[in-house]
Amino acid sequence: MEPESNQPAVPDPRAASEVPSGETPCIVVTGLRKRFSDGEVLRGIDLVIRRGELVGFTGRSGSGKSTLLHILGGLDRGYEGKVSLLGQDLATLSDRALANLRNRHIGFVFQAFHLLTHLSCLDNVLLPNAFAQEPLGRMQAEERAMAALTRVGLADRRHSRPSELSGGQKQRVAIARALLFQPEVLLCDEPTGNLDDFTGQQIIDLFVELNRDGLTMVLVTHEPRVAQATTRLLSLQNGLMVPPQSLEPSR
């Protein structure tokens, strides 16, 4: 357990990037605080992420990186402060509206892949369509899913079960699932944490490619090579945003 600091939250100038006038930022966080039963994890985060950025969060275990990512993605609603995603205040959305936002506009990639083991790769990629308010027809959805699988290089494994895939392949399927509805934001929590160096690099290259195509990405990582791929690197320490120390973005 990291020691808690009682100092007031100090906004980090790196946390706010310049947003051209007239453009709605992709994510705006103001005074974000999050408390669990064992203490405060986020203690006043202010953050603006522009569209098309590839932002990385670093920090030690327990610094609040994943919690912040969950809040940004509308997976965790018990917080203080304001979080806007694509111009919508997440706290004011109903459960259904928030689910729809996650379904259509946000993609998630997790360290543990979180594929449904009883479904094929294709069906895993199609999963978001099952919960869409206006689902695509079977043919159209499959076309999209196949396009996503092709993009991650796994079109030929569409009928395979996750248990038949390597770690890298599983993560690619998870990325394809996140891309089904061509979201505006991709939130990734330690996406290469369970992968070897070579496979991890392949995933990073894929992220860079996706970001070049205009996808806004937020990565939580503590791996230098992932950090180097970001366009902006932010660091969390004791629930506060601080200047990054050892990890520097390369781009």
Binding site: A99, N100, R102, P128, F131
Partner: peptide, 8 residues
């Protein structure tokens, strides 16, 4: 995961 991909 279902909630993450859009289940209410």
């Amino acid at each position: 995961v279902m909630r993450a991909v859009g289940a209410s």
